[in-house]
Design a protein around this nucleic acid. Structure first.
Length: 254
DNA sequence: ATGACTCCCAGTGGGAGA
């Protein structure tokens, strides 16, 4: 079973690239972030024509998530139950017996901002809900754009970016709290090249210079850990014309 | 450098992303 996550930075712009990518990478499920489109405009037909089912939860201009899967996802949940939020950030569903949660974590803007306070509140709510989901669905995958670097290996310039957004101690503590529930960062279960990132700024030729961050992650529960065969970042779509600033991450479960 | 690039909704600029 293969699962993937991709922040597409507008599905309207990136739909052809998503369809091309799925044709070349026929994964069982793909979660998207930053679809930036309302549900009435979601390109459902094009995705179904490619042989996939889809559940989606969007809004105008910002955010928006989708869960694309070979078999229809069951028991779909949108956003974090009990957490009041006007942003569309989470979609969860059960695919082939595996609970799949796709999430677009808040950016946080800057450590002293209101948006950072919201990010911390959102992370608390996610943690509480993930605990409940794990007791109901032991075989669980949490993946998406976390907007958090796990440690300095995930940062192109850890000295220059120390304590800036995505690299703060508070964000990394929240990530560790998720791990402490019995989750595993699948990328680090394997030997990986140094300076491996999933996002590069559009400016200053950041991709060409490999000035990036690893902020897109795939976490699996204890029950799935032994089945993980690989976790790879697919840099190919970042080389497309009009690329997303993020590139897909793919996990293979045996 | 409170920049850079891209997307969106707007509308001949500005917010947000990371």
């Amino acid at each position: 079973m293969q699962l993937a996550t991709w922040n597409v930075n507008s599905l309207t712009v990136r739909l052809p690239q998503v369809l091309d990518w799925l044709a070349a990478n026929p994964v069982d499920a793909l979660v998207l972030q930053e679809t930036k489109t309302t549900d009435d405009k979601f390109p459902r037909d094009a995705i179904e024509a490619a042989g996939y089912q889809v559940a989606y939860f969007g809004q105008k201009t910002y955010n928006g998530v989708a869960l694309i899967s070979r078999v229809q996802a069951q028991d779909v949940v949108k956003n974090i139950p009990g957490f009041e939020d006007d942003m569309a950030r989470v979609i969860a569903g059960t695919v082939d017996g595996v609970r799949v949660i796709g999430a677009y974590f808040p950016n946080g803007q800057a450590p002293d901002s209101d948006k950072f306070v919201y990010k911390m509140r959102w992370l608390d709510a996610l943690h509480a809900w993930l605990g409940r989901e794990l007791s109901q669905y032991p075989e669980l995958v949490l993946m998406g754009d976390f907007n958090i670097t796990v440690d300095d290996r995930d940062v192109w310039d850890p000295v220059g970016l120390k304590d800036t957004i995505h690299c703060t101690v508070q964000e990394r503590e929240h990530f560790q709290h998720l791990i402490d529930l019995g989750m595993h960062d699948t990328y680090r279960l394997f030997e990986q090249a140094e300076k491996s990132f999933s996002w590069w700024d559009y400016r200053e030729f950041a991709f060409r210079r490999n000035r990036g961050l690893r902020i897109d992650h795939i976490l699996v529960s204890d029950a799935l850990k032994a089945t993980v065969q690989s976790c790879v970042i697919d840099k190919a779509p970042r080389k497309n014309e009009r690329p997303s600033d993020h590139t897909p991450v793919v996990v293979t479960l045996g």
